[in-house]
Design a protein around this nucleic acid. Structure first.
Length: 423
RNA sequence: GGAGAGGUGGCUGAGUGGUCGAAGGCACUUGUCUUGAAAACAAGAGACCCUUUACGGGGUCCGUGGGUUCGAAUCCCACCCUCUCCGCCA
């Protein structure tokens, strides 16, 4: 959520920022409502001040045994007047809030301007030393997984629906190994605290991180209980501190957590939908940071480096993309995507997204910290990054580690978790 | 699912219609005292919003949302959450 005062004082900056994200700017509408709102507030608070002081007089008069009927009658009318104006105010507040909840975060000034994903900027890429292309035609992950009997998309579709993969045998073990390896690295080497969150959250949490209201169609819902299966562990973990206040020296707080992720992927059938490329349930290890504003950008770089270390240890080629304004998500101020190489698809696949949300989520979720120097409260900055999503990573592992006879060599760092070296 | 108890400021805890943003205690900040610290004493200290160049002024907030009243932390209604017991259960 953007600061209403900031919008009021910098309407042009806000308009420009919103439009660079290809979103409709409703700034003029906001300002009109805000102006009306403030004029009502001024008036109604005047009336309330009068009501408060006169009501106290009534108390005194009654105590003194005097008659207050005339004033009481007048106050009754004043009360009705206040109620009318308060109702109007509540109406305006609610429409104003509705609009504000739909206003995206502004891109940071360092974000490259662009219309769509084709305008993203490749910051760097990485290949393991001695990397060579296959001297045979590589099979894709779906063919490999099916033949080796480690993935079963068909039965997943039977028991649940399409896009709900089943991992089997060594495939299941490999998946588990990957998750454990990533968690252990972030916990033991990078100093994150592990969180194992609930996989369902309430609507307040979804609003706090910005999934609601805009992404409602992309989420599963459990209407009867008012709950939502999480699309990412970002939601429960960031909301852990909703409506809370940190002391300055507690920051930064770094969490890492595994969760299954549930996404409806509405309207995306047909494109990239083969195998793991687009699924409704997948596994992800997510890093979440709560930091002081001045450290936001540096911490974003840390997030990227913590995530890419996994890929380098797995020896998988990757590239880092700086997302352009037009490709930035609703809540993000700045974002890097990490893409891993798929030799069979012959393209890069998004395996991680590392973002700073500036104070956008912190405002929505009301997460603040008390500054040491002047004891004032200020919103924290929140960041998160996948470290990483296993589905896309699994594609890259299977395809990059395949042998000419259709087997999979287990990446070295995972072997102590799998207990086997070959699938 | 059934029965009961309860939700008050950073914590604890009083308050059952009027001057209560809310006693007392703990913790906190500042000052006095002290070589320093502790203790003691004194003072101060909440969040959000509106308004003001500023000093300041005003409003809202006692789980949430409604209602009654001139006036609600206090009365009424609905909901949410926590705890205890019973039932069921991975």
């Amino acid at each position: 959520m953007l600061d209403l005062k900031f919008i009021r004082e910098n309407p042009d900056t806000v308009k420009k920022g919103i439009e660079s994200k290809n979103e409709k700017n409703r700034v003029d509408e906001i300002i009109a409502l805000d102006t009306e709102r403030r004029s009502i507030i001024t008036k109604v608070e005047d009336l309330k001040a009068r009501k408060n002081s006169v009501s106290q007089e009534v108390g005194k008069l009654k105590k003194a045994g005097q008659n207050a009927d005339a004033i009481i009658a007048e106050m009754k009318q004043l009360g009705d007047d206040i109620k009318l104006r308060d109702d109007k105010l509540a109406e305006i507040d609610s429409s104003l809030n509705d609009i504000l909840m739909w206003i995206p975060n502004l891109p940071h000034e360092s974000v490259p301007f662009g219309k769509s994903s084709t305008d993203n900027v490749e910051a760097r890429n990485w290949y393991p030393s001695g990397y060579e292309e296959f001297n045979f035609t590589p099979q894709d992950h779906l063919a490999l997984g099916t033949k080796l009997n480690i993935l079963d998309f068909e039965r997943g579709a039977k028991i649940t629906g399409s896009g709900f993969p089943v991992y089997k045998g060594k495939g299941a073990t490999l998946e588990r190994a990957l998750i454990n390896y990533m968690l252990d690295l972030h916990i033991n080497k990078h100093g994150y605290t592990e969180i194992f969150p609930p996989f369902m959250v309430n609507a307040d949490s979804m609003r706090g991180t910005g999934q609601l209201p805009k992404m409602a169609d992309d989420m599963y819902t459990i209407e009867r209980d008012g709950l939502y299966p999480i699309p990412t562990a970002e939601v429960p973990i960031t909301n852990l501190h909703r409506n809370e206040i940190f002391e300055e020296d507690q920051l930064p707080v770094n969490y890492v957590g595994y969760s299954a992720c549930f996404r409806r992927e509405a309207g995306s059938y047909g494109k990239d939908s083969k195998g793991f490329l687009r699924v409704h349930q997948f596994n992800k290890v997510e890093m979440v940071k709560f930091v002081k504003p001045e450290n936001s950008l540096a911490e974003l770089e840390n997030l990227v480096s913590d995530a890419t270390e996994i890929l380098e240890n797995l020896k998988i080629p990757y590239r880092v993309l700086a997302l352009c304004t037009g490709d930035l998500s609703f809540a993000a101020a700045k974002c890097y995507d990490l893409e891993t190489w798929s030799p069979a698809e012959n393209k890069w696949l998004e395996a991680s997204s590392c973002s700073t949300f500036w104070n956008f989520q912190a405002r929505r979720a009301n997460i603040r910290f008390r500054k040491k120097e002047d004891k004032k409260l200020e919103f924290v900055h929140t960041l998160n990054g996948s470290g990483l999503a296993t589905s896309r990573l699994m594609v890259s592992i299977l395809e990059n580690y395949q042998t000419s006879d259709g087997h999979i060599v287990v990446p070295e760092v995972l072997r102590k978790y799998t207990g086997f070296e070959l699938i």
